[in-house]
Design a protein around this nucleic acid. Structure first.
Lengths: 227, 227
DNA sequence: TCAATGTATCGTACTTAGTACGAAAGAGCT
DNA sequence: AGCTCTTTCGTACTAAGTACGATACATTGA
């Protein structure tokens, strides 16, 4: 089989490689993303990929940056609260579309351009809204931690949906009596297994509390009590 | 070489295997934890491990649960705020001791006994402090997201210390002018690269804000404004 | 049109890691 | 000592990342 056996396929490029990698990870989880599976998705042989990325690490860095590029940036100079709210919602949506991303963030310490642009916009929005440098640092750390932390919690949850809750509860019961975890059991029965339950709804509550708290401090220009 | 070539070594056990796995991951990162490196650490041949754990996944589940077991539990029935504060600090400390853990949490969806016990204690503390089921759900999600999110941010940061900041800044400058990220650049110079900078200090600020906000709502028995 | 040259693609093969299978070595009991 | 259960191990297969060098292709200038 000669090399040109696949004529219709467009030429490879770094961007195409990375976008395909995102698609593969979306489809089968990060574990399903191997250089070989990626090659298959691209209708190419594995080694062809290496002319566009140095190695798999670069692929992983690249797809994390793609996810960041999907997050809506707040408008620098606009109202900070709506801006933060929308970027938080957008960030969470991106993490839900690509649940593997949050787990990758931890390992990848070399941020791509989209990631940097993202941070720049958040900091800029706060600064232009009158936050001091110190207060910007506080707010940035807090909002980031909350948003990514919530995304992490959501990603950790067994695939969303009520039937999974039952599965987990089942596994819990398998190895231990409900007596070992009385509050957790009560909580599961009284809340989690109720019909309308949706963990995602908690996102708004926490975000409101965080932003309200920051707004209060911003108005007064002081920090909260330090115990 | 007969099987008994290593006489002094204590017999393997699931617990010993898992504790060694934690040590290996602490030493070289999660990437350094392979069944073979673990076997070396145990002074055993790789396949010996499989009599005590089913596979590597079980090892990973196990070490995550060990990390959870190191987190101080709040005293159910005690004051909720100091309880939450201490468990948050303790959780963060555990994540700093084992930076690989936060990245694992995302993939491991089958919680171990320590993890369940931990959740049970947190929920119990809130319930006994008079939180409604709904409010407990809010508080639980919020505190968890913040604590793990902060741990994730901290783990993502290039290894703590001032010289690393310079490295990162250097890489940033390499591929792009400071003009592309003006606010980020200003922020780095004005804040991050200042002598006394310590990202970890932000933890207290956010935690205070979160707990204060929850306390306020708990006192009034209502939710924050919903936009 | 065709050869020259740089680029893209690929085949082969080496290495590391997880682990299936069954054998061998201990350990405890009779 | 002999039996049996438990623990440890040797061998080997498979999947995955990727080094190396070869081959095919596209572009360009004559």
């Amino acid at each position: 089989m000669p090399a040109g056996a696949n004529p219709g396929r467009p030429r490879l490029s770094r961007s195409l490689v990375l976008r395909s990698a995102v698609a593969v990870a979306d489809g089968g989880g990060i574990g399903a993303l191997t250089m070989r599976s990626l090659a298959d998705a691209l209708e190419v042989k594995p080694m062809s990929i290496y002319h566009h990325v140095a190695n798999k690490d670069e692929v992983l860095d690249g797809i994390v940056d793609i996810v960041f590029s999907e997050i809506e940036l707040p408008a620098i100079g606009g109202e900070w609260q709506p801006g933060m709210r929308r970027r938080a919602a957008s960030a969470r949506a991106a993490m839900r579309r690509h649940p593997w991303a949050i787990g990758l963030v931890q390992t990848r310490t070399s941020p791509g351009p989209a990631t940097l642009k993202h941070h720049d916009a958040v900091i800029g929005t706060l600064r232009e809204a009158g936050f001091s440098v110190e207060m910007t640092a506080h707010a940035f750390a807090l909002i980031d931690a909350y948003v990514y932390g919530f995304a992490l919690s959501e990603a950790t949850l067994p695939i969303n949906g009520p039937e999974t809750v039952i599965e987990v509860a089942g596994k819990m019961m398998d190895q231990s009596s409900p007596k070992d975890y009385p509050y957790l059991t009560e909580f599961s029965i009284e809340h989690v297994m109720k019909p309308g339950y949706d963990y995602g709804r908690e996102f708004e509550f926490g975000l409101d509390l965080v932003l309200d708290g920051l707004a209060r401090l911003h108005r007064r220009g002081i920090g909260p009590r330090h115990t």
